[in-house]
Write a protein that binds this DNA or RNA. Structure first.
Length: 576
RNA sequence: GCGCCUGUAGCUUAAUGGAUAGAGCACUUGACUACGGAUCAAGAGGUUGCAGGUUCGAGUCCUGCCAGGCGCGCCA
């Protein structure tokens, strides 16, 4: 049930050790996929110089010490010294059967770590934009995958619920009335509320003065002010939850850990850093200066932890998250799924935490960088510079175009069924678009790309799964009750089987590298292999033994597709 | 100026230092009396920004250029 490379790896190591000495056992035998065989071993080329023999001769010696009769039908040395291994169909079939008998589909369980994962992090009283969409979708896929691998994932939605804008927002809420239609915008169109507040702030000096006073009252813990603030946050939660629910994201109110949560810890953090000599006053602000962080004209770059007016910035709050996650959540590893431009800031926060002894070297802190989403002008898409793209509207567009597709393709389905499929497919397309490219790459936002339903898209994978289900439905069979031997009779079945066997290795790699796009790439090629199989290998019309084997392959494909899609956060509709 | 990131087919992109750089979209051709055509089979499309270097082997590592982006003290 392991991938062929995982099975071969120790065997190759042993052969190399037998041929050239035990010291080589721990070296990477360099197994790679190959266009000439099923697995290619490249160790001989690297070993050549070390053992003082030409690469082909090294390869030949490795092969001589290798007994793969049960596994491989062909092992030969090729080119400058590649070892090409062709697997036996019987062995592939056995591996597929073993995988089908494994509830984890060949994905090894890892020693469970406690991993707080910081993602999504929208701001109160602001529209979520496509940048938030990306960190939300990628973070959620990582959370699901790490959980499946056996880790204890602790979701941390670090919402922006504190800071100077809240004076303005609270005053504006008072002006329009807490139960007014204007206030209702917080749940439906938060940007409209924010911008109206902003306009009042800029146009009306008295209002601006009141807003500033309100910030002071908020920070002083004034009861009425806190009540109003809570109202803003609660309204925004409604908005976030509508988006999350529409997206099918696993975040709940229980995962909220916004900036305000750390408010009480901030003075202590400053005090501790200052008395430890890590932070010093500079130009009126309390700053941490770190070795190796220099900016303009070689001047050291500060991490400002207390502003000259006595207020705190996000550096201090982020330090508090480190302390909280290490001490209270008992993290083994810290994971931040946030924008790439924050890389320097995060590096400084972590270095400060390490210097202060808050973040031991044994606990890695990892920044899964989310690349900028650009507008058609190749500039970062900013909510304030025009492009008032509303996320909810984008999601509704996606559902609507999926609905149009279904209405055209499946007029035979009843209204309720079509209404159920549309969100799964439309939202799946949007999420897959964000997941299928490397998370740190920038991309130009393209609505058409997000809504696309053909090609390397979520709907293609969902469609493949639906076609498997259709086979079982028309035969009146339950895919979960499929038993019997697997036989590899054609190259198409062989290719499908080999694809299936890679699932465990791919999921493991996604967890190790924190790169969901690798799962997308894998599932797409699996779906392609199944589509070819579907065209070329009739299942239900085949002779009983072949039929059973093909049902088996189909059922396993379905399980892998559904499981893989679920790890990405995509649904798998029964029909579409 | 300093630091970080990016540059792959017309477009969107993949690739643990491994053989002929792999897909999708768009384009061309073919396959529906179908286990479901949101599909499949095939074709065309590349000096991986440029120039050196390291290596048996470089899209990948190093150096220098070119182009673009981001960051570089009190917004978060």
């Amino acid at each position: 049930m392991s991938s062929p490379a995982d099975v071969l790896d120790p065997l190759i190591r042993r052969a190399i050790a037998a041929a050239f000495g035990p010291q080589f056992f721990d070296e990477d035998p360099v197994l790679r996929p190959s266009q000439f065989a099923d697995v290619q071993v490249n160790a001989a080329l690297a070993l050549s110089k070390r053992v003082g023999q030409p690469p082909r001769q090294v390869a030949t010696q490795i092969v001589e010490h290798l007994d793969l009769d049960a596994i491989a039908s062909q092992v030969n040395v090729s080119g400058p010294g590649f070892i090409n291994i062709t697997l036996r169909e019987s062995w592939i079939a056995e591996q597929v059967e073993a995988m089908a008998g494994d509830s984890r589909l060949g994905v090894p369980l890892q020693p469970g770590q406690r991993i707080p994962i910081d993602y999504s992090a929208p701001n109160v009283a602001k529209e979520m934009h496509v940048g938030h969409l990306r960190t939300t979708v990628v973070g959620d896929a990582l959370a699901r995958t790490l959980e499946f691998l056996g880790h204890h994932v602790i979701r941390q939605n670090h919402i922006g619920d504190w800071g100077t804008p809240f004076g303005m927002l609270i005053e504006y809420l008072l002006r329009v009335g807490e139960n007014s239609e204007q206030a209702q915008l917080l749940e439906t169109d938060p940007n409209a509320f924010y911008q109206a507040a902003r306009a009042a702030f800029e146009a009306d000096d008295d209002f601006a003065t009141q807003a500033r006073a309100r910030v002071v009252a908020l920070q002083a813990g004034d009861e009425e002010t806190l009540r109003l603030w809570q109202g803003l946050v609660d309204r925004s939660k409604q908005y976030f939850n509508r988006i999350y629910s529409r997206l099918g994201v696993t975040l709940t109110d229980g995962d909220l850990a916004g900036e305000s949560r750390y408010n009480d810890a901030l003075p202590g953090i400053c005090q501790e850093l200052e008395s430890a000599g890590i932070a010093t006053i500079s130009e009126g602000a309390l700053c941490v200066f770190l070795d190796g962080f220099t900016g303009r004209e070689g001047k050291p770059v500060p991490l400002i932890i207390r502003k000259s007016d006595g207020g705190y910035g996000y550096g201090t709050t982020d330090l508090a998250t480190v302390k909280y996650r290490v001490n209270t959540l008992h993290a083994d590893r810290l994971l931040y799924v946030i924008g790439a431009p924050q890389a320097l800031h995060l590096a400084m926060v972590w270095q400060t935490a390490r210097n202060a002894g808050w973040l031991p070297e044994s606990i890695p802190a990892i920044h899964a960088q989310i690349g900028n989403v650009l507008g058609s002008d190749r500039k970062i898409l900013r909510t304030r510079s025009g492009s008032p793209l509303r996320l909810m509207a984008l999601l509704e567009d996606a559902v609507a175009s999926a609905r149009a597709m279904i209405d055209e393709a499946r007029p035979d389905l009843d209204e309720a069924t079509r209404a159920q499929i549309a969100p799964a497919v439309g939202i799946g397309a949007v999420k897959y678009a964000d997941l299928s490219v490397a998370h740190d790459s920038e991309y130009v936002f393209d609505l058409g790309r997000m809504l696309a339903l053909v090609g390397n898209t979520g709907p293609y994978l969902q469609y493949a799964a639906a076609r498997v289900r259709s086979i079982f439905r028309s035969a009146g069979l339950d895919p979960d009750q499929t038993v019997g031997a697997v036989e590899i009779g054609t190259p198409t079945e062989r290719e499908l089987a080999l694809q299936l066997l890679e699932f465990g290795a791919v999921v493991t790699q996604v967890g190790d590298l924190l790169e969901p796009h690798r799962l997308c790439t894998y599932l797409f090629s699996l779906a392609q292999a199944f589509s070819a199989f579907y065209e070329q290998c009739p299942v239900l019309k085949a002779d009983p033994q072949v039929r059973q084997s093909r049902l088996h392959l189909s059922a396993l494909t379905l399980r892998v597709l559904v499981t893989g899609l679920d790890l990405l956060g995509l649904e798998s509709p029964e029909q579409m």
